[in-house]
Design a protein around this nucleic acid. Structure first.
Lengths: 317, 317
DNA sequence: TCCACTTATGAGTAATTGCCCACCAAGCGA
DNA sequence: TCGCTTGGTGGGCAATTACTCATAAGTGGA
């Protein structure tokens, strides 16, 4: 008889087991309570915890006809290499809708056997994507950040997309150790001239795949909400035609990068239009439509993951 | 403005959408009913249908410590290349427990970019695995059956594992057009000498990966239940030491193939012990323990996907 | 055209779940 | 030691969901 190492189940183990019994086994919480020898209330809490901790992954295994139609319409019009349209979730946060689709796409890339350099932006959509991916082993890939990781207030909490992916898939990650937006162009250039920064910049520029969010420049602009640009700067850039932003780089409604405002001081790497490698935009929401449209027009992104209402709105223009 | 092809949503589309809203969006059935413009009862039925049709995939994204311990104990003892132990689902059918784990493993293989020949057996466990896989595009692989597809009663319904995989992943499939077990050895040999059969046999023998169920030889033997062997043949083989069966080929408690009973008339390809390629057994249940143990001992299988109680029982011997 | 038969629908109802709250036990600073 | 916070527990209850059943709506064959 073999000896089995006996490790005590952690709270997460219990939650995982409860979630397993509930979602896969289809048992009632009463039955789970009996099986695990705990109270029904505890079983309920374990099941809820399993969900909250993302231990249980739910994914839709059916392409809804309407969404497929939208995908092909978008692909045709903008010549996209990759396009996914998730069904709407009604009035709920659209990030919830696109996160699983984005996660599936990132996983697909991560599962490629040849070593790749994967460049990532930031933002709520990317963050949702990361939370939704399952742990896969992808230690042969390199993850590189497109955007600086030094925030005006010094906090870096918003910029842990790359770190979280790295955590989950054990791939080496290369954060870009520069301010997202420097106070002056000179300071930005000073950072850029540092050897380690240069290397990360070169890596990002040569990335085999790019995943980015797309920011709007309306009053709810992420750049404004997160304190990277002031209201005055936002107004100035809007006056110059700003319609959207990718990795902090602002462009107009035709997807042409501007030469004004914070664009002269942005620290990260710009995603060049017409890349010959996949540059996938992940964005949904009514206010993002002009931004996404611009990025699609000039092919700053050549792939799109969005939701149904956004897809319709883009096609309606 | 682009023209969007407008295909009417199929019943499955509605079900998928309802399931999406319910499981991903976390909406109540009342809300879904309002969103889709149907009655609450209909929403409930759509959600149930989405689940029943396998449109919603639920998977556990956490390795429970206890199961990891069992996996390493099994790997150590039997020198396994691959080993997965699923948490038990209590008294529920163990196939439900191992199917998702088996599906994940098959998907992993299907996602490999180099063309592979994948050999498959049959049985309830394999059938469960197939039902649990998601649609991936794997047209570059070839699927080959290890076991004949002509049943004594002429029906082939039980043998559609390979066809179902093929359906889901669009890979070419090569069924073995011979009786599972022929009435006489001579007839079996006659089938085997046919050109098309020979080619499938050669393909199966050279398979890069093998997935098989493991059958028990106790009174609930699948071979008996499905009418491939008679009670008398079963008793004869048991008297000769039969402990289990893989792809219809019967072996003893040490995993040595027997030369008696139906083994002289079995139509399919035998999985040879000590393959240098993965041969993964998918089996769980108390009555299968001696069979699995035998197959592990002689390395007819060098990988195992099972559940917690079965793993414990195997290790307790 | 009608009838037997299957299939879908909505009402009602029992089971199940999510959540609030009062309680308890352990840890901790005064 | 005491009072306080923190984290967990189970009772109770309202909300939500699953199931049963009677009925309506089709469907194919005579």
């Amino acid at each position: 008889m073999s000896r089995i190492e006996h490790t005590d189940p952690t709270p997460q183990d219990d939650a995982a087991r409860a979630g397993w019994l509930y979602y896969v086994g289809g048992m009632t919480q009463d039955q789970i309570a009996a099986e695990l020898g705990v109270s029904r209330q505890r079983a309920q809490r374990l099941v809820a915890k399993a969900m909250a901790d993302g231990l249980i992954h739910v994914r839709l295994n059916h392409r809804i006809g309407t969404c497929l139609d939208l995908e092909s319409a978008l692909s045709d019009r903008f010549g996209l290499g990759r396009c996914r349209v998730s069904p709407s979730l009604g009035s709920a946060d659209p990030v919830l809708s696109i996160a699983p689709a984005a996660a599936a796409e990132l996983e697909r890339v991560l599962r490629m056997p040849d070593p790749l350099t994967i460049a990532l932006g930031t933002g709520r959509a990317l963050r949702g994507m990361v939370d939704a991916i399952v742990r896969v082993d992808a230690a042969h890939h390199r993850l590189v950040s497109l955007i600086g990781n030094i925030a005006p207030d010094g906090s870096a909490s918003f910029f842990d997309v790359i770190m979280r992916v790295s955590d989950k898939v054990r791939a080496p990650h290369y954060p870009m150790l520069v301010p997202v937006i420097s106070p002056t162009g000179a300071e930005r250039d000073a950072f850029r001239s540092l050897g380690p920064v240069k290397r990360v910049v070169d890596l990002a520029r040569a990335a085999d795949v790019v995943f980015v969010g797309v920011g709007q420049m309306s009053d709810d602009a992420p750049l404004l909400a997160d304190g990277f640009v002031t209201r005055a700067e936002l107004d100035q850039m809007r006056a110059a035609g700003a319609a959207g932003e990718v990795a902090g780089w602002v462009f107009d409604s035709d997807g042409q990068y501007l030469d004004v405002g914070t664009n002269t001081r942005t620290g990260g790497v710009r995603v060049e239009p017409n890349l010959d490698r996949p540059a996938i935009g992940i964005a949904a929401g009514a206010s993002k439509v002009p931004a996404v449209l611009g990025a699609l027009k000039s092919r700053i992104i050549n792939g799109l993951i969005t939701d149904e209402p956004t897809a319709r709105a883009i096609l309606a223009t």
